[in-house]
Amino acid sequence: MGRLINAEFRKILTTKMWWGLMIPTFIVALAMAWGVGALTSDIADDVYREDFIKSAGIGKDSVSFGVIALTRAINISTMFPLIFGALALSSELHRKTITTSFLTASSRPALLSAKAITYVLWGAIYGIVIVLGASLGTLAGSDSDILPEGGQWMLIALMGIVSTVLWTLLGLGVGALMGSPVASVIVLLIYAIIVGPVSEIVLTGFADGKPNIAGALPNGSANGLTGSTAADLIQKQIEELAQGKPISDRAVDTFQAAMRFAAGAPGAFALWASALIFIGWSMLFFVSGLARNQRRDIT
């Protein structure tokens, strides 16, 4: 297995695609976090300038709205590792290098497992790049008052890396199922950029803002990983501001929904539920993609 993983790493490192995709990944994460951070800071400025907020003695540093920049940037940047994963097997099928790969591997399951392990590692590498870009962008674009604390930051970063790994595997599975690099990349991009986000907003609109089917879809659950973490954090800080005054459950729900929407995860479930749902989706595509190639006639 070690030999085959080594071979997979060489396949990746001997062409330009890994850095050709990694550069835009970093730039998009950085720019998105920077922009959203600046925008959030402006809005926060306006809010805290209001007299009633001032009179309540609420300081600008009491709520870490900066997490929104972080999650938004992570969510959009995952489309690059998604493409990277989608090409893993489909380009081998397309270029027919899969023939030699199968001829030099002890078995198909061994080769496909080696690919899976390799792309989990590469997904993590992309995840670190994304988190780095998003963090730098958030730092650069946001008022220092609205930045989250280190621990909270780390939790969102960790969720971002988990989400990137799962997106990579989902891409690998779809590419393996479809067998065509162009078709699988187009289908995945249309879903991740257009169909997913739009359907989630529409579904959430009809669901009256509560967690709903949008959060159970692949894109919705993936965004929930980071978005719900951010929303939880802001929620806790607001509750602290209320200083023990009773807040109705309904108010909590409404606020959560609003924050998840702001963090780019409309209709999402709580962190743990989103994680389980997205792991399910990734595994569904990943396993069926590999199963398809277990039996495929290579002609």
Binding site: R3, L4, N6, A7, R10, K11, T14, T15, K16, S91, R95, K96, T97, I98, T99, T100, S101, T104, A105
Partner: peptide, 21 residues
């Protein structure tokens, strides 16, 4: 129709499969 990656060098192509073996 045994394929090669068009931008991978001949030696690197062989290195991939040398690793696998």
């Amino acid at each position: 129709a045994q394929g090669f990656h068009p931008t991978r060098s001949a030696r690197n192509h062989l290195r991939v499969y040398a690793a696998a073996m």
